[in-house]
Simulated scan of single mutants.
Amino acid sequence: MMRVAIVDDEPLARLAVKVRLARHADMDVVAEFGDGDTAAAGLPAVRPDLVFVDVEMPGKSGLDLLAALPRAQRPMTILLTAHDNFAVRAFDLAALDYLLKPVDDERLDEALDRARLALPYRGPVGAAPAAWTRSFAVRVGTRTVIVDAADVERIEADGDYATLHAGGKTWLVRERLQALALRLDPARFQRVHRSSIVRLDVIAELRALTNRDALLRLRDGTLLRASRTYMPALTEALARRSHPPHLSNIA
């Protein structure tokens, strides 16, 4: 059972998260806090495994709250935000995931799966580095081909399977896209849509759309749509790169 706390100044927002968590038998909501100051005092006593934190709150913000907690007392964190952009500083606080309000059920499930995978590796000073997937074993007829993860530019969902795109070739793997997303290093790969994952260094341009989605242009000319529910994590991951892609707006 995973102990969960919720920090949000909006009662309805806290309720929405609680209702969704109630569908997961291994999630136990042990505390709620309506502001950052109260949470900063209460979290060390409650000692949750996982905390949902609203980024923008009156007084102490969600990021200020996390920074105020000693590293040894900082639980796994899923940030909640009503906006597409917030401080890159969140990455320095080792946030596990970022959910855009109103929270999408599938994105919440993905974030909880990420927390379940990370929990066994957590020690007294936080999570140990995960063993990210470095290669894929792909069956081609009677042969097994090894495809390096570093060579994969993007991955597309194909029902219960996924298609790897690498060096102009495609490879079908017998695994769902959601499962693959949890095993890939988020510093190198990001899910941008329900149906696609992209390697960050192949993104040449990101064009913001008026509905808060975005259009990605990859270095080979491929165009992909990035859904608004995946934009917070994507934009922050790109911002951390030494040479982020060009960002433009489409009116």
Score class of each variant (00 low, 15 high):
Leu209Cys: 08
Gln190Arg: 11
Asp213Asn: 08
Gly42His: 10
Ile155Asp: 01
Asp28Met: 12
Pro186Val: 12
Thr133Asp: 05
Arg217Glu: 11
Glu236Cys: 10
Glu205Tyr: 00
Tyr230Arg: 03
Arg139Trp: 02
Ala31Pro: 11
Val103Ile: 15
Arg183Asp: 11
Leu234Gly: 05
Met231Tyr: 02
Asp213Trp: 00
Val51Ser: 14
Asp220Thr: 01
Arg174Val: 07
Pro124His: 14
Ala137Trp: 01
Leu177Arg: 02
Arg134Ile: 03
Met231Gln: 08
Gly167Val: 03
Leu43Ile: 15
Arg74Lys: 08
Ser135Glu: 14
Asp9His: 12
Arg89Val: 07
Ser61Ile: 08
Val147Pro: 02
Leu206Ile: 11
Arg176Pro: 10
Arg71Gly: 14
Ile250Trp: 00
Asp37Met: 14
Ala22Cys: 13
Thr235Gln: 12
Asp185Thr: 05
Thr133Pro: 00
Pro11Tyr: 04
Ala87Trp: 04
Asp92Phe: 01
Ala16Thr: 11
Ala87Phe: 05
Gly221Pro: 06
Ile197Pro: 01
Leu234Ile: 03
Pro186Ala: 12
Ser227His: 10
Gln73Trp: 06
Glu106Tyr: 02
Leu117Cys: 05
Leu117Met: 12
Lys18Phe: 12
Leu247Cys: 11
Asp160Ile: 05
Ala72Ser: 14
Pro120Gln: 06
Ile155Gln: 00
Phe189Arg: 06
Asp26Val: 10
Ala149Ser: 10
Met57Arg: 10
Arg191Ala: 00
Thr144Ile: 15
Leu164Arg: 05
Asp148Lys: 04
Arg194Trp: 04
Ala127Asp: 14
Thr142Val: 09
Trp171Lys: 02
Val7Glu: 13
Pro186Gln: 06
Ser248Gly: 10
Ala251Met: 06
Asp158Ala: 15
Ser135Val: 04
Glu32Gly: 08
Asp213Gly: 00
Glu56Phe: 11
Met57Lys: 08
Gly36His: 08
Gly221Gln: 08
His165Trp: 06
Val51Pro: 13
Val125Ser: 14
Arg194Asn: 03
Ala95Tyr: 00
Leu184Arg: 04
Asp160Gly: 07
Lys60Met: 15
Ala233Arg: 06
Met231Pro: 06
Pro75Asp: 12
Ser227Val: 05
Leu119Ala: 15
Ser227Lys: 00
Arg212Gln: 05
Ser248Pro: 01
Arg47Glu: 15
Asp213Ile: 05
Ala115Val: 06
Ser242Trp: 04
Ala39Arg: 10
Asp220Gln: 05
Ala87Asn: 15
Arg176Gly: 14
Ala150Cys: 13
Leu108Asp: 05
Thr142Phe: 04
Asp54Gln: 12
Ser248Arg: 07
Val145Tyr: 03
Ser242Ala: 15
Leu119Gly: 11
Arg191Ser: 02
Asp104Lys: 01
Ala118Asn: 03
Asp9Thr: 14
Trp132Gln: 07
Ala67His: 09
Ala68Lys: 09
Arg219Asn: 09
Leu177His: 03
Ala25Gly: 11
Asp97Ile: 02
Arg3Ala: 13
Leu63His: 07
Leu218His: 00
Leu164Gly: 00
